[in-house]
Design a protein around this nucleic acid. Sequence first.
DNA 1: CTGGAGTGTTGCGAAAAAACGAACGGTACA
DNA 2: TGTACCGTTCGTTTTTTCGCAACACTCCAG
Lengths: 300, 300
Amino acid sequence: MPLPYLRIFRYIDEIARVGSIRKAAESLFITPSALDRRVQDLEEELGAELFERHARGMRLTAAGEIFVHHVRAQRADFERVRSEIENLKGLRKGTVSVAASQAMAFTVLPEVMNRFRQVNPGVSFMVKICDHASVVKALREFETDLGVVYNIPKSADIAIQFEVEQRLCAVMAEKHPLAHANTVKMRDCLRYPLALPDSTLGGRILLENYFAHSSLKPKIVLESNSFEMLRNFVRSNDAVTFQIQIGAELDQVKDGLIARHIEDRSLARQSLSVAQLKGRPLPLPALRFMSMLRDALTGK
Amino acid sequence: MPLPYLRIFRYIDEIARVGSIRKAAESLFITPSALDRRVQDLEEELGAELFERHARGMRLTAAGEIFVHHVRAQRADFERVRSEIENLKGLRKGTVSVAASQAMAFTVLPEVMNRFRQVNPGVSFMVKICDHASVVKALREFETDLGVVYNIPKSADIAIQFEVEQRLCAVMAEKHPLAHANTVKMRDCLRYPLALPDSTLGGRILLENYFAHSSLKPKIVLESNSFEMLRNFVRSNDAVTFQIQIGAELDQVKDGLIARHIEDRSLARQSLSVAQLKGRPLPLPALRFMSMLRDALTGK
DNA sequence: CTGGAGTGTTGCGAAAAAACGAACGGTACA
DNA sequence: TGTACCGTTCGTTTTTTCGCAACACTCCAG
């Protein structure tokens, strides 16, 4: 349906993504033969093969890598232009795409998104919850405008727009002995069974770090890649789990759970970073959303 | 003949450039009616008018400005991708486009270009000699990769890659009284008729500046926008003209002319700047050429 | 080693997109 | 008040793209 102008770019992008002409043809609602012709024409025009023909599909050549990167940058920038023109008409339309750590899915992101939509009703969102590595990958491949992630790997082509230091909280049932203790320290928690986020989740790195420098042996009874799983688990036993400060109201009972600060100074802090692909001009809605996100995260 | 993929982009670019569908259609070798359709389709697709229909032609709207800028950036970046792919094939093909001040047309630019072509025989050049304002304009409109210009106006979207300080020289006939004087000062020159570069040429600004702070009245007998004109003029009389150090062998007779340093300390120096459009990834040949230009200008 | 299931590719007729060519309606400027 | 230039519309023709069926090839399991 949409613009026939960048057809070939969409084609190439999709083939590179799924690694096969036939699969790409299917999701593009087109015949493999037609798609193949477009690829051949383009390769002839450029004077270079973009794909290695493999018996199992297509793999990008070096030239293909260059070209696909350009294609994706181009397509993303075209969306920016669209939103810029919509903005000119006073309509403020467009889509903001965010790739975020799982912890953001609970309170912060949904809340800010709702506030944003009250001011900009024409803007829609695409949120992809994934781990650190995937966030960077999504930024690199122009799949997403913004990355919101803990402990983002430093990298030359990623621009960190701002960071918020986050502390680790202990989460436990409301009737847990530590629930209303004066202070909660890490060694207190270690007397109880632990339910830990796995390495795909933010916070795990901090814990690993602590355990490595501590003589105490934790009793790990559950590891999971789901915060919800962990929370539901500790609700009805004496285990303790951990999560980032954000998304947890401190010292308040909620759903039978309570989150407490961990007082240890030795526990390194980690930062929540909002990042984008370096050098890429973002669509206006994304810029405005990032601004609102900054206000919300840094405390208005 | 070349790629049908970015046809519409080429169309829009050309219309914006010449300001008329009919003129653009002519240089694009299609009929005005066909061109008109493409514009209308695109405008409908974007949901915004790109041009104001005027009785004398088409003028860009605000949305059109945004779109055309994107189109030109896109087309320029596509050329970069082409050259990058050619480079991958070991061919080092491509075109380097330079917009330069007139003084560069004599010695520096041709010389460096020849050296460059000995190393990269597949690279061709496009050189446009023009004044300061046009250089910046050409950079902004993606017409040129590099700008080589005196006293470049500082501007947020222009990135100065490097600068070389240049002093003003007095140029006169080989038999001129000042030709072999021990030193040449500005006030010496003022005793003779002057042939001045006009305001479109580098160096004029320095002279204006000097005259404004001096009580001496210059005898201006010729103003011209052509260095060749000025040089040919003073060859056979007692007038003095001025030009930038570059492109003039100091204290050596050449073609019946000689160039002398001007000793005045009060005479401000000006810098020759090599610049590009900020944030724009340059084609590989342009980068390599700029590097060689830097070596040549800063003394290897 | 042989058949099946996956891949990219080719030839030809059909469909869709773009371009043509002539006529229309308007604004500016002499 | 023409005349000259502009963008635009309509019906037709040309070019480009697509679909369909068949082909050639590689891989892998039986």
